[in-house]
Simulated scan of single mutants.
Amino acid sequence: MKNIIPFLIAIVLFASCETKKESDKLPLNGTWRLISAETTEKDSSFSTFNPKTKMIKIINDTHFAFFNHDLNNGKDSTALFFGGGGKYTLKDSTYTENLEYFNNRQWENNTFKFVIKIKNDTLIQKGIEKIEKLGVDRIITEKYVREK
C-alpha cells in the first residue's frame, strides 16, 4: 500500500503536465475585419488603413484567406480588389503565414511570421514582411475585429 501512493501521485502529476489542451489555444478561427494597419519602413511609420475599402481575413484550423475591395462596387477610380491565402501554423503566439495564392504572383511562396494577441474580439498581429526580390522589408501591425 505504501508503494502505491507515490505511484498514484506520479500519475496525477504526469497527467497535469500534458501539453496545451485544445481549449487553451488562441481562439483564432473565424472571420476578422481589418480596422487599422500601420507600416514601419526604416525609421518611418505610417497608416496603411484605407477606410474606403473593406478587408477581411478568414481563418480555419489549417488555412487563412484575405480579401480586400473598395466600397464603391468598383465603379470609379477607387476600384480595388485583391485576395490571397494559404496554410498557416500557430505555435503559442507565433502565427506564420505561408502565402500560396495572391493576385500579385510575385508575393506567392513567401512566409510571413507574426506575433499575435487576441483580447475579446480583437486580433492584433505584428510582424515582418520581407521579400528581397521586390525590395520589401517592413514591419506591419494590423488590428482586426471578429465579424459576428
Rank of each mutant, 00 (worst) to 15 (best):
K2S: 12
I5Y: 10
P6L: 08
I11F: 03
S16N: 12
C17Q: 13
T19L: 11
K21V: 14
D24E: 15
D24G: 07
L26I: 08
L26V: 03
L28S: 06
R33N: 11
R33V: 13
L34H: 01
L34F: 02
I35L: 04
I35P: 05
I35R: 02
S36T: 09
A37L: 05
T39L: 09
S45A: 15
M55I: 06
I56G: 02
N60P: 02
D61T: 09
H63P: 00
N68L: 12
N72H: 10
N73E: 08
K75T: 08
S77W: 09
L80P: 03
F81I: 13
F81Y: 14
G83H: 08
G83E: 02
G86P: 04
Y88T: 03
Y88H: 09
T89N: 05
L90E: 04
D92L: 08
S93C: 03
S93M: 02
E97P: 05
N98D: 13
N98T: 11
N98G: 01
Y101V: 15
N103E: 09
N104V: 08
W107L: 15
E108F: 03
N110Q: 10
T111M: 08
K113S: 12
F114I: 01
F114N: 04
K119N: 13
D121E: 11
D121W: 00
Q125H: 06
G127V: 04
I128Y: 10
E132T: 14
L134F: 05
D137C: 08
I139K: 15
E142T: 01
K143R: 09
K143P: 01
Y144N: 01
Y144M: 01
